[in-house]
Design a protein around this nucleic acid. Structure first.
Lengths: 229, 229
DNA sequence: AAAATTAAGTGTATTATCAACATTTAATAT
DNA sequence: ATATTAAATGTTGATAATACACTTAATTTT
């Protein structure tokens, strides 16, 4: 018994690619880098890397995200395994894609510059290497599905935020508008928001109340599931 | 440029494991085999195999399913990539799991016997090798989610079937009962069923009408999505 | 100090969907 | 002719989703 059984079978390079989502108040953004490796070096790409024998695939994904952003303990979920023969012209590489949700201003700017990384609006994507555009498309669909059934703003919004910011996030994710009254009623009825006494004054004279998430209730609904959309 | 860039990185064995669902009128079943390979040879297992360099991962999954059942052009969907370090005691193997939906009596019985395969009720699973039980659990959750948003009976039921058979399928998938009147109304309102003039007489004196799927409408709703549960 | 401005905050009526519930009907067997 | 069996079918109340417009708080301007 042990580690000699499977010698005869083919072995594969395993890449891990990360679709990193962020929200800056207007559009939904993805964090893209200039690819540092041939082939296609210098072109826009998702952040990625190769998995190593001494780590799980989840760990590889976390490592790659940390490497780019300096962040750990980030919301991350496996998206899909892309295994077509010719997806990478540099060789047979099977890629496992993960998507992550981060607060857009929490990442380490030095690291971002190191990788020539930029937040790019999903509606203005440049040409991307390999099948990375397809990955982003799938990730966005998964995010929509996720957000329909789970609270998710916590990961993408600053600690305190206004109802309009939250609505803007949902509108960016679903690329549609919501009725302010219905949206407010729905989201407040979930009981995951706590209103602060503080107001955001930059964008109106009256000012909009800040809210924070009730972490306990949020976590509960995150596992139970909700019906949001 | 070309196929020499990535030499330095680690390479992995890639397994493909198939969760094959079937429905026999009462319970939801999975097709399990007696594992033919050390380690754990002789124990119950999902049907699986190693991916080869000359095929896509999707193709590998289709090959493995064909190999066991003799069936091709089967409904199949990638489930998840399992990449933990010690999931397989025989070596570092990353497994990509697929789930398939087949008509339970369509498969090639000789082939099934060759692999000592059996249809086993999901509620009576024996101990399984590695993380295969976890795979089945996840596959069942995905199936529930799938069925909530897409018509799916077509793949699991015989060509013609009664409303009660269809309801029994849904009840098996969701492990709950539905009100017959509400279920019938809902499913008929989708407009994907065509009633035949023929009746099934085995289980009642009155007889229950057979239905078939309206393939065109079915395919349309399959891509558009529905709200079933 | 009054008026104007700006976006925030809020309520109601209508419609559609979901859930609960029991009787009648068609065909065969006695 | 009667009994039996499972199939087929409708209504009502509750809940959720949608559509829609005015009032309020605070600042800025006159």
């Amino acid at each position: 018994m042990g580690r000699i059984e499977y010698k005869q079978y083919d072995r594969f390079l395993l890449a891990v690619d990360c679709i990193i989502f962020g929200f800056d108040g207007s559009g939904l953004k993805a964090l893209l880098v200039k690819r540092g490796l041939e082939p296609e070096a210098g072109k826009w790409s998702l952040m990625g890397g190769f998995a190593q024998q001494n780590e799980s695939i989840d760990d590889a994904a976390a490592r790659i995200l940390l490497n780019l952003t300096g962040l750990d303990k980030i919301y991350m979920e496996q998206l899909y395994c892309f295994g077509d023969l010719d997806r990478d012209p540099g060789g047979r590489v099977v890629s496992i894609a993960y998507f992550a949700l981060i607060k857009i201003d929490a990442s380490d700017n030095d690291k971002l510059e190191e990788h020539q990384a930029k937040w790019i609006d999903l509606k203005k994507l440049p040409p991307l290497v390999f099948d990375h555009k397809r990955m982003i498309k799938l990730a966005k669909e998964r995010l929509q599905q996720k957000v329909s059934n789970h609270p998710v703003g916590f990961e993408l919004l600053p600690h305190k935020f206004t109802l309009q910011q939250l609505q803007a996030l949902y509108e960016a994710i679903f690329e549609r508008s919501f009725d302010k009254r219905n949206f407010t009623r729905k989201i407040l009825s979930l009981g995951i928001l706590q209103r602060l006494d503080e107001k955001e004054k930059a964008s109106s004279k009256k000012g909009a109340f800040y809210y924070v998430f009730d972490k306990k209730k949020y976590k509960q609904l995150e596992s139970e599931g909700i019906q949001m959309i």
